[in-house]
């Protein structure tokens, strides 16, 4: 068992958690645009509460995306700073898998399609199956229009559930997907406690990176147009 500090600022929520040998402390705040004020004091508080020093931890886990670009960079910057400063390895965890894990833990769901609203008429999404020891990724994370979301192999008799605010756009998904998904949890957000729990699995598999390798996975990479190629041509 590893001692892991975890951080998430990928959505309007800001959360930190501390996974010790057999307990998980968590502080989850739903305070949009307050991440910069809240995050570091929350880290300090949770460490103080447990009476643990940063240097006594085994790793730092963080939600590396997809999500709000600025939010991802706040958690990344703090993770890089803490991990480099305390000489700790980093465990990056996908927001979409974190939400799937929350539904597994709370609802015992085994087939989960996670989706976050990506704005601009698109969603981030991925599909997971809990195999008893961890998740198989049935569909890799991507950013796409909701009506383009589809499972190539939907698995017979699987009870699919939807996690995340991408499902607030349920009526924009294809009829096939709408009927495939039995239930949705559109208010579910990534939370640091489950990032820490998933990170424990990754830790056991040796899936760690160095502080400087801890970088966001945005999924949306076309963020600007080159001269003469886009609708906003340079004058």
């Amino acid at each position: 068992m590893a001692r892991i500090l975890s951080l998430d600022t990928s959505t309007e929520a800001c959360s930190v958690a501390l996974k010790l040998d057999d307990e998980v402390l968590e502080n989850f705040q739903l305070q949009p645009r307050k991440h910069t004020q809240l995050l570091l004091p929350m880290v300090e508080e949770i460490l103080a509460e447990a009476g643990v020093k940063l240097q006594q931890l085994d790793a730092i886990a963080f939600a590396n995306g997809p999500g709000s670009f600025t939010g991802l960079r706040i958690a990344t910057g703090v993770t890089q700073g803490l991990a480099f400063g305390a000489d700790l390895p980093v465990i990056p965890v996908t927001t979409l898998e974190t939400m799937a894990f929350t539904l597994f833990r709370e609802r015992f769901a085994h087939y989960i399609i996670s989706s976050l609203d990506a704005r601009m008429g698109e969603v981030y999404w991925a599909a997971y199956h809990w195999n008893g020891n961890g998740f198989d990724c049935i569909a890799q994370p991507e950013v796409i229009a909701p009506d383009q979301v589809s499972l190539i192999n939907p698995i017979e008799d699987a009870d699919w559930v939807g996690a995340g605010n991408g499902w607030q756009l349920l009526d924009q998904f294809s009829p096939v997907m709408q009927s495939l998904v039995q239930q949705t949890y559109p208010d579910l957000l990534p939370q640091a406690g489950d990032i820490a729990r998933l990170a424990e699995l990754y830790w056991q598999q040796g899936k760690t990176v160095s502080a400087e390798e801890a970088i966001p996975v945005y999924l949306r990479d076309n963020v600007a147009f080159k001269k003469g190629e886009g609708p906003h041509q340079a004058k």
Binding site: T36, E44, R73, G77, V78, G81, L82, G85, A86
Partner: peptide, 19 residues
């Protein structure tokens, strides 16, 4: 640029805390 400033600020503050 706010986003660019944020990168330096978050890393610097976290590094200071760790040190």
């Amino acid at each position: 640029l706010i986003g660019a400033l944020m990168v330096g600020a978050s890393t610097a503050q976290a590094l200071a805390m760790a040190w």
